[in-house]
Design a binder for these strands. Structure first.
Lengths: 186, 186
DNA sequence: GTCTATAAAAAGATAGAC
DNA sequence: GTCTATCTTTTTATAGAC
């Protein structure tokens, strides 16, 4: 099987156990591949596996978040579509964010640049939409940052409370709040 | 030295490397104690070390967050004092949250109950302040949850962008936003 | 309370057959 | 492309001296 086949398994596993907690034994079990086969697909070992998944997530974000945000139409509608995609990828708030996960392990330095770029791209895409609504660029940047803060925070709190409701509420409310003329989060 | 001596070192190390990434070798180096000495203080190994640090953080939160929030005075002032203490403990946004860290490793199940209780206590304390301002209990609960979401999210984004500014901005703005009659975050 | 030394287990990685 | 078997290194944990 081509190595792309295993990206969903790897994503799930790294989200569940973190970089350091996802041992080759667990990866082997989750993918159904022996260790040697894993090294055939990913000669660089775990690092290359995480890299592959992060690359996949970057292209997922480009396709499912950034491009839809750049398309024409009502800003609120476009932000709602972002929310729908986020509910998909985070399974309604039941799954944590891999970017946050890799920031919190011994692999932070290794992948920090990738995560930073991913956040920057995401924030910029939201900010571009908000400037369309008449918001000045600096305020749009702050408010877009607050949007990502709310999403990431909601994922953490949903994990902590073991209840996806906070995440879902944030996703519902975010589009309108972001487009209010009186800033809510910024 | 009594084992409390090593709590700050352990806190720093677990925040930096996560539960799985903080090996006994690193802990030994950070504390200046040999492995055998570590087991003398913490017979339960790493699990007991994390437990000890989480217990410390729970009592820190009771003293520095919950009690000040319950004291008399202007709600905005009390929430600002919470912000000051958070800036201390998270070193201005340069350090991640240990609660979030333990949620994202192989020790999640082991410590999840502790983290859940900690979040619940924190949210309830904020909600109690907000009901004082005339907010109905359900809305106060939601808005208090949003406050913790904003704080946790700001820590993640500050880590991801490698820039403490988002955290500091959230801390500055939070007290007023929470006490606005027109809800900002909820 | 701290150390050195050592054991036991787990994790990462590779060789070579099929 | 996948496997079994093996090897190396790291990690956790303990025994026993000081």
């Amino acid at each position: 099987m081509p190595k792309e086949t295993y990206i969903p398994h790897l994503l799930r596993l790294f989200r569940q156990h973190g970089y350091d907690g996802a041992t080759l034994a667990k990866i082997s079990e989750a993918t159904g591949l022996g260790k040697a086969s894993l090294y055939h697909h990913f000669p660089g070992g775990k690092d290359e596996m995480v890299e592959t998944v992060l690359d996949y997530l970057a292209s997922w974000m480009e396709q499912n978040i950034v491009q839809p945000l750049q398309s024409p139409g009502d800003p609120v509608v476009r932000l709602r579509s972002m929310g729908d995609r986020l509910k998909d990828v985070y399974e309604g708030g039941r799954q944590p964010c891999l970017s946050a996960i890799v920031l919190m392990g011994s692999a932070r330095d290794l992948f920090h640049q990738r995560v930073q770029t991913l956040y920057q791209v995401w924030i910029s895409a939201i900010a571009a939409v908000l400037t369309e609504t008449g918001l000045a660029p600096p305020q749009a940047q702050d408010r877009a940052t607050d949007a990502v803060i709310a999403i990431q925070g909601a994922l953490i709190v949903a994990q902590g409370l073991n209840d996806p409701a906070p995440f879902q509420r944030v996703i519902e409310e975010l589009p309108e709040i972001l487009c209010q003329s009186s800033p809510a989060l910024s």
